Structures are given as structure tokens and as C-alpha cells.
Computed example of a mutant assay.
Amino acid sequence: MAPAVLASGDLAPHRAVYDLKLGDSSDRSGIAAVDGRIVYETSGSTCDGYTSTFRLVMRVFDTKGGSQLSDLQTSAYESADGFDFTVRTFANGVATEDTLGRARHQDDTVIVDLKRPEEESITLQGKALFPIEHTRAIIAAAKAGKRILQADTFDGSESGRAIFPTLSVIGKEVDPAQREAPKAGKRGEDDAAAVAVIGKGRAWPVTVSFYAPNMPMEESEPVYSISFLQYENGVTRRMRLDYGDFSVIGKLSAFEYQEPAAPCPGN
């Protein structure tokens, strides 16, 4: 499906698959290889809200012949009224987190109403952005020519109790006419056919660093960072996850646009 004509500010409904491989690793990491996959799907619009699902399955092989399998599954609905989220994680098939809740902005706080792991309401200090809000803020900053975006974020992880300070560094816009096409078969390269489906919209290289939760950024070091090419319609590719002692490359292996949402009333 060709990219849809979107209302101003809307993100494109799409499904993207990224195959994971080890990038770099230090001797002290003890990591020999990585294998896995990310599947991300989103639909909706600004007026209807956005529904998204994300799954990251990754097996890490160590230099002693052992391995560990991690599985992160999230689903969310984000609208002007709030952020409904489910987060489930597994380590070697054993559940380690199962969180269900709803978050909403209130003045300078985020109010989180949890249903799982137990029913309670908590208040987190700070004007944190939800995931779609954060993506749109990065795109808006890039289009405005800004190179730095500092923002607190909330995505429901850490049992719905964490606000993560983030720092986004935005590179110079990549000219579509000069954008290097992926080389077929080259390790770590995005699939050329998948990239062709995305099209030639405006795009910027971005690196987002996530800091220790619930504490000032200046008092901690980044926990991890994600680098990618950010398109103005919300699509990303050229993914790289950096965990300090090792990094993981996310190769875009499949991509398709989904049916766009119906026009908002009055449009």
C-alpha cells in the first residue's frame, strides 16, 4: 500500500518488522551474539487516538555458551484523554512483569491508575510525554530546525511507576535525492524493498538517550540509547540500540502502510 495522504500532524498507520543482530560488544560484556526481532504496529489519528502494539523478542548468547531469552510485549491506546497501556515481560519464558493501567496528565503530574499487578492510583511528578506525544515532539523539533529536545517520558514500563528523562539529538535533514539506498545482502542494511515502500518523505537522523527513571538527568548516566532515521510521518528505520557494553542493530526487514483513519469530523 502506498503512503496515505495524512491530515496535518497525523502519523502514518503502519506495520514494521526489524531483525536484530549484534552490533558492537566490549570484552567485559561477555556477549558473543544476538538474535531476535521487533514487530511494531500502529493505527489511528490525532482526533481518534492511536492504537499501537510492540513486541521485542531477543536472545543474547554469551561467550561461555549460555543464552538468555527476553520477550517484551506492549499494547497501548493514546488519545487527548490519556494513555491506556499493557506491559508484559518474560525472561526465559517466565513472566517478570504484567502491568495494566491508564495514565493521564494533570497539571505538572502524571496520574496513573493501575489495575495490575495490583489496583492502586499513584502520582508521578513531572510533565511527561506519552510515546506518540514524544514522537510528534521529536518531529516538530526537527522540522523547526532544532537539534536538541529534552523531555520526560512515560510509557508504562517499570510497573507503571517510572518517568524517564530523555535527551534527543537531531541531525541534519537527509536529502531524499542523496539518501543512500540499502545494499542488498549487506549485513545490518535495511531491506531495499521495505525502504522503497516507505517513500521519500522528509527524514532526520535521531539519537534518543534514556536516563535513570524518577531522578534528574544531570544526576545519572544514560541507561540506553536508540538511534534511527525519523521520517516526518512517524516511520523509523536504521535502528540501533546501544546498551553501553554492547549494541544491537535493528534491520528493517518488512514494512507496509495500513489503511488510514477516517477523516476527523468537519474535515
Rank of each mutant, 00 (worst) to 15 (best):
A4H: 06
A7K: 13
D10G: 07
G23V: 07
D24M: 09
G30L: 06
V34K: 04
Y50W: 10
T51F: 12
S52V: 03
T53K: 12
F54C: 03
M58F: 00
T63H: 01
K64F: 12
G65C: 10
S67N: 14
L72C: 02
Q73M: 05
E78C: 08
E78P: 06
F83T: 07
F85G: 07
V87I: 05
V94S: 13
V94N: 12
V94C: 00
R104H: 05
Q106I: 02
Q106N: 09
D113S: 11
D113C: 00
L114Q: 10
K115E: 12
K115Y: 02
E118M: 10
L124T: 10
P131K: 15
E133K: 08
T135R: 14
T135E: 11
A137K: 10
I138K: 14
I139G: 13
A141H: 11
A142Y: 01
A144V: 02
A144H: 04
I148K: 13
Q150I: 11
D152L: 13
S159G: 03
G160A: 09
G160Y: 04
A162R: 04
F164N: 08
P165A: 11
L167M: 12
L167V: 13
I170N: 11
V174T: 13
D175W: 09
Q178V: 00
E180R: 14
G188H: 07
E189W: 04
D190F: 02
D191S: 08
A194T: 06
V197K: 15
G201T: 10
R202W: 00
S209E: 14
Y211A: 04
Y211I: 03
A212P: 01
A212M: 09
P222Q: 11
P222E: 12
Y224H: 10
Q230G: 04
N233E: 14
G234N: 03
V235R: 05
V235F: 04
V235S: 02
R237T: 14
R237Q: 10
R238D: 15
R238Y: 03
M239A: 08
Y243M: 12
G244F: 06
D245V: 03
S247F: 07
V248H: 00
L252T: 01
E256T: 15
Y257L: 07
E259H: 06
A261M: 03
A261Q: 12
A262P: 02
N267V: 11
